[in-house]
């Protein structure tokens, strides 16, 4: 039963995040959303992912959002339906539903992901990598190159932040009251 309730709560949070008035509450609900997501993943035995999501979603993201929020001004927007956006979302949903029709059942031990490739990891990871946690073994060794990429993504984000935010040319004086059109220097 709880397997049904948690995702449902997730959906409620997800929708509330977007439709609640005020950014701060939105961010708080998003934090809750991330936590619920992490719980759901614990339920699904994906502990590594859950921890990461808790740290990232409920932790860093929230802090980040709040920092940014404290630096900006929020104007409450009117609640109007955006019909084209709705149409696009619904059509995406339709395609997804269509695709779901003959997706294999979840939790089935005999579906392709559980019979191809993965068994190799489960059987050999200890002999080949000395790791008991297969997730760690795949992460660092079998797909270690992906993780190098991932680390690079993090570093890229760091460099991008420095590139964008550091420096002297983005001072207050360049707000839209400024005379020189569109130029920032």
């Amino acid at each position: 039963m709880i397997d049904i309730a948690i995702p449902l709560f997730l959906v409620v949070c997800g929708i509330a995040v977007l439709f609640v008035r005020g950014l701060f509450s939105s961010i708080m609900i998003f934090s809750v959303y991330s936590l619920v997501m992490a719980i759901e993943w614990v339920r699904l035995n994906a502990v590594d992912v859950a921890i990461t999501e808790a740290a990232v979603g409920a932790g860093i993201s929230t802090v980040l959002f709040i920092i940014i929020l404290s630096r900006t001004k929020y104007v409450d927007e009117g609640k109007h339906m955006n019909i084209p956006a709705l149409l696009v979302s619904v059509s995406v949903a339709a395609v997804l539903l269509y695709g779901t029709l003959d997706l294999p059942n979840l939790r089935d031990p005999n579906i392709a992901p559980n019979t191809h490739v993965t068994p190799y990891y489960l059987e050999h990871s200890y002999e080949e990598t000395g790791q008991l946690n297969v997730v760690a073994a795949i992460l660092a060794s079998y797909r270690g190159y992906d993780t190098l990429g991932e680390t690079t993504v993090v570093a890229t984000a760091g460099f991008c932040l420095i590139l964008l935010l550091r420096g002297s040319n983005r001072r207050q004086g360049t707000k839209d009251s400024q005379k020189r059109t569109g130029s920032r220097t």
Binding site: D48, I51, A55, V56, L132, A136
Partner: peptide, 18 residues
Amino acid sequence: HGELGPGGGFQGGVILGV
């Protein structure tokens, strides 16, 4: 200690950063 239980560079890094 990612070898044994959940955890690893990323999660630990976050904690250190925090």
